[in-house]
Design a protein around this nucleic acid. Sequence first.
DNA 1: AAAATTTATTATGCATGCATAATAAATTTT
DNA 2: AAAATTTATTATGCATGCATAATAAATTTT
Lengths: 155, 155
Amino acid sequence: MKDITIDYALRATWQSVARMYNEEAKNFGTTMAVGFTLLSIDPKTGTPSTSLGPKMGMEATSLSRILKSMEEKGLITRKPNPEDGRGVLIYLTPFGLEKREDSKDVVLRFNEVVRQNVSEEELNNFFKVMETINGLISEKKIYTRNTKLNNNHHQ
Amino acid sequence: MKDITIDYALRATWQSVARMYNEEAKNFGTTMAVGFTLLSIDPKTGTPSTSLGPKMGMEATSLSRILKSMEEKGLITRKPNPEDGRGVLIYLTPFGLEKREDSKDVVLRFNEVVRQNVSEEELNNFFKVMETINGLISEKKIYTRNTKLNNNHHQ
DNA sequence: AAAATTTATTATGCATGCATAATAAATTTT
DNA sequence: AAAATTTATTATGCATGCATAATAAATTTT
């Protein structure tokens, strides 16, 4: 269909979504990453921060920084986890809850509009291809061999 | 197929590809962004830097920073464009050409392996869905309405 | 139970994308 | 042709993702 690579199409599409999400989030004073984090926090109970990383596909170290700035902005509070002296529980403030709702609207709208413009079959296939790509990468099907070959030259 | 949103799947997949590309690039001392830039530079003639942004889907301002660091690392040289006193022509150094080849290998391998694991029909459909998403965003089908509604509340 | 290991968190540095502001060189208007 | 506008570039600041290193608290080994 196109003369572009798979990685390019993925990148361009994701960046276009990210740009849109960030523009939207700016309207209510947050960012895309903050929105995703808010959506991963349970609005009712304390959320262990350990659960956020896996849920969001982010490293704990990246999250730590975002949580810090979210706390400074009054979106969340962090309390020690009584069940684990190393851990932290995250709570939404009322302000955070409000922004969570705003963020949710944007995500729901995006997903809704895309679903209106793509058949269910196409969408299932779309998910399937992404799963295939993820699988190939996590099973090292793509780069291990390449890495081995190259490493000998360079180290 | 999954209980995840379209944006989440896209993000997770792109990030997984990006992580893999960055790991690969690290093996030969570059990064994914540097590799993409190298691949967008014509290895034979001077490439006007204006042409890179659109080709890579990046803002000129983002590119400027990458080009600067690439020049410092000896991957490229920047010369004034004789045809436009504002502009710059980018040339690959021999070192840059070498890294361009390395980068090309990684991209080719990724695309090849994915194509081996996905039918042509699935791939075409995959591209089509991404085009649809891009189209919806660039035509403001997703956020304009939302923005209008929300802006009244906030400003 | 003491020692070794693992896990959760934070701080920092680097890379990179965006936005904004500044500057200089085209280009278009008047 | 002079003035106004647009375009290409760069510098900076902010956000965010990763990696690495440090620290403290579990957990597992011995």
